[in-house]
């Protein structure tokens, strides 16, 4: 066992990790931050996406010790400082971008990374960027709509059910 430190949602944290400890396990079991979900555990589904030094990664496929010293942001660090939902989270609620919610933390983290790189993405760019995030409930349409809305674009012409 080694004690490793990293910055998680702006706070420096230290906890024990073994060589085999995944970043997802370090966050969930080590720090109790269970907002990061583990769906497939094989880097396919994107439920576990967090930001490492500003970039989205699948935390189930990164070793905690390999990112010691990095800045990590998880879904727990996304709300506004007064505790209200941020623009992306609020748009997911307003546009029914979630049903069971299992994929949602990864979707929000991926969407936040997209909007940081590309503040006004097209619908095609959103679909392309979210390719690694799988949702078994929504059919994606309302997720894409929520990301469009969160980027300040007019979604009134986007039907809730039409496939593009």
């Amino acid at each position: 066992m080694n004690t490793i430190s990293m910055t998680v949602n702006g706070k420096t944290v230290s906890a024990e990790a073994e060589g085999r400890t995944l970043l997802s396990g370090f966050l969930r079991e080590g720090l109790g931050l269970t907002g990061t979900h583990v769906g497939c555990d094989t880097s396919q589904c994107g439920a576990c996406v967090v930001h490492v030094d500003g970039k989205p990664v699948k935390s189930c496929s990164v070793l905690a010790m390999d990112v010691a010293g990095s800045e990590i942001r998880t879904i727990e660090g996304m709300a506004n400082s007064d505790g209200s939902l941020n623009a992306i989270q609020q748009a997911f609620q307003d546009h029914h971008g979630l049903q069971c919610g299992f994929c949602t933390p990864g979707m929000v983290m991926a969407a936040a990374a997209l909007l940081a790189e590309n503040p006004r993405p097209t619908e095609a760019e959103i679909r392309d960027y979210l390719e690694g995030n799988i949702c078994r409930c929504t059919g994606y349409q309302n997720i894409v709509k929520a990301v469009m809305a969160a980027s300040g674009q007019d979604v009134s012409e986007m039907s809730a059910i039409a496939a593009q």
Binding site: S43, G46, V49, V52, K55, P56, V57, K58, S61, V62, A110, A113, L114, Y129, E131, G132, N133
Partner: peptide, 9 residues
């Protein structure tokens, strides 16, 4: 290749 998260690692 893959998706953005795969490409970042």
């Amino acid at each position: 290749i893959g998706d953005p998260s795969v490409r970042n690692r």
